[in-house]
Write a protein that binds this DNA or RNA. Structure first.
Lengths: 155, 155
DNA sequence: CGATAATATCTCTATCTCGAAATAATTAGT
DNA sequence: ACTAATTATTTCGAGATAGAGATATTATCG
């Protein structure tokens, strides 16, 4: 017999359903908390994520931004437009490939991040206070596996 | 000194930041997978969540729906309007309290759920195949703690 | 009882997000 | 080199979500 058949197929599926609900709820509660914090600085979560990406990883092609923060390319155009209107980033053409445009923090954008990122880090830590550090590490490992597998299924 | 000072304040905060990113990514990948599945049935995730709530928990006041699936009351009005247009649910006034309106599955809505829910359960189970059942149980417990704590912080 | 606060739902507007299609530039195949 | 396929970005239109305020009803408290 292969893999000893299906022992409790229903139970396993119920566990998956339960996990889905708990995951969606936890993520949504956390996201709303973070959004509330970030809104104080006049940004939404997506815009902040773009700034954070550029702040920590340097200039990025717009296409990379779409991939790293998991939004549609058209949404990235929208967010980059807005951040550019606020003079927090600028578009820079790629010299080697004229299809590509980099997004790059302005001085103003960088100094904004230098000012608000420490507060953000504190807010995140406070919001995630429901678990001790060790359990967080375990949770990170499991969520990575879960997320990577799910992302694979997408295509 | 209170609470033996800060031992590794930076490290702990970095763990929290890492957890935030991993949680958001995992949830987003999973959500997109589920949305793709549900779209085949002509529904979006929010509408499906409402149907699922009514299917498993019976008629619900609109206000309860907002709370249970974590959307604004105005969004609930919007979703309920749509489901009512599709004749999947109907509004029923509450006899005891004329402020309250129940949402209730129609026969058509119930038979839709009877038809698609088993497929949904399979799709969820397949999408969450990155972890064995035992780890899922652990994950559920930790996410519950994390989510409840975060939800408390919201107000 | 009467004024005020609280609750439930809805309206309206602004913002955000996606998907499909358009445009432009590069790469691959022959 | 020429055509076709691929890649990067943008435009456009439709749908989804939140927030503030409006309305109606019920609860509270003097």
């Amino acid at each position: 017999m292969a893999k000893e058949g299906q022992q409790q197929p229903i139970d396993e599926r119920e566990i998956s359903l339960k996990l889905l609900i708990v995951l969606m709820r936890a993520a949504q509660s956390v996201r709303k908390g973070i959004e509330a914090d970030i809104r104080h600085h006049g940004l939404n979560l997506t815009a902040f994520s773009v700034l954070e990406l550029l702040y920590h990883k340097g200039d990025q092609p717009i296409q990379q931004i779409s991939g790293k923060i998991l939004i549609a390319s058209s949404s990235t155009t929208y967010v980059v437009d807005q951040l550019q209107k606020k003079r927090l980033i600028i578009r820079k053409p790629c010299p080697g490939d004229r299809r590509v445009t980099f997004a790059s923090l302005t001085d103003e954008g960088r100094s904004l991040m230098e000012r608000i990122f420490p507060k953000h880090r504190e807010a995140v830590h406070a919001l995630l206070g429901g678990l001790p550090a060790e359990e967080k590490k375990t949770l990170i490992d499991m969520l990575k596996k879960l997320g990577l597998f799910a992302a694979d299924q997408l295509g």
